[in-house]
Design a protein around this nucleic acid. Sequence first.
DNA 1: TAAAAATCCGACCATTTTACTATGAAAAAA
DNA 2: TTTTTTCATAGTAAAATGGTCGGATTTTTA
Lengths: 144, 144
Amino acid sequence: MRLSTRGHYGLKAMYDLARHYGAGPIPLKNVAERQNISGHYLEQLIAVLRKGGLVKSVRGSQGGYVLARPPEEIRVGEIIRVLEGPIAPVECVSEIKSPGCDQADHCITRTVWEKVRDSIAMVMDSISLADMCREEERNRQNRE
Amino acid sequence: MRLSTRGHYGLKAMYDLARHYGAGPIPLKNVAERQNISGHYLEQLIAVLRKGGLVKSVRGSQGGYVLARPPEEIRVGEIIRVLEGPIAPVECVSEIKSPGCDQADHCITRTVWEKVRDSIAMVMDSISLADMCREEERNRQNRE
DNA sequence: TAAAAATCCGACCATTTTACTATGAAAAAA
DNA sequence: TTTTTTCATAGTAAAATGGTCGGATTTTTA
């Protein structure tokens, strides 16, 4: 029941972009350093996020990446789906078309996985990047 | 965000044993056939379940496997934990001792994964094998 | 115009995990 | 003593994971 580093690092990167939202394009190198992720590897992940419409890129010197929408409008669930595919504890309950196993109708374990899937989606879709920034802000104030 | 077949098949097998609970030891071959799982592979999984204290074995002819406790007292979460390890969308929020990453304290993505983890655990721990049998029974009656 | 700072792209690679298969020993009942 | 079962260990092909490497392209800026 593990996420790969794609989703893990990807959310970190998106959160980093959210924290700097409004400050123009952020070079990936900076994100990688702050979040302690291999730069080259992160390039691959951000390419997926770009193709998925979650970030926009600005090429050339002074370029970098910007969230495609304000942090308020990007939820964790979207990021994870773009990087890891549809949420599905087992294939036969994938959010996207499951080829469907033969016994789909009378398979009780299936209903268990549907419940798990829905609860994961519920949590991830209820948290936006802005929520994360606000929580960080609260934590920071509590530490003072 | 996928379970491996270990958890998937393991739950199927445990559910099969639950359905036949009270009828003496069930040979694994029967379970494998009914659930459409490779027998040899299932042997490996059931060995883990036995070491995890979830099933008891009876060797020799007329032998097989029996749930270690009544279906009412075995929850999906236990089965999954035995077969797949502690529930943890990412390592640093594992139910069992996380070695802890350096930035653990001020990592906001961490709190996201904690919420995901808890919601998965909540669902899995709220469903017992007996619940699954009852649901199957209801479905069967509705089909008639 | 040239250099620097970025994104972009595709190939490669070592390791681990996955999902098995195969073989055979040991135990218990018939 | 034959059959039926669990038990244990080893092997294995394919896929996924988590990267690295090298360089082309685009844009700004000196």
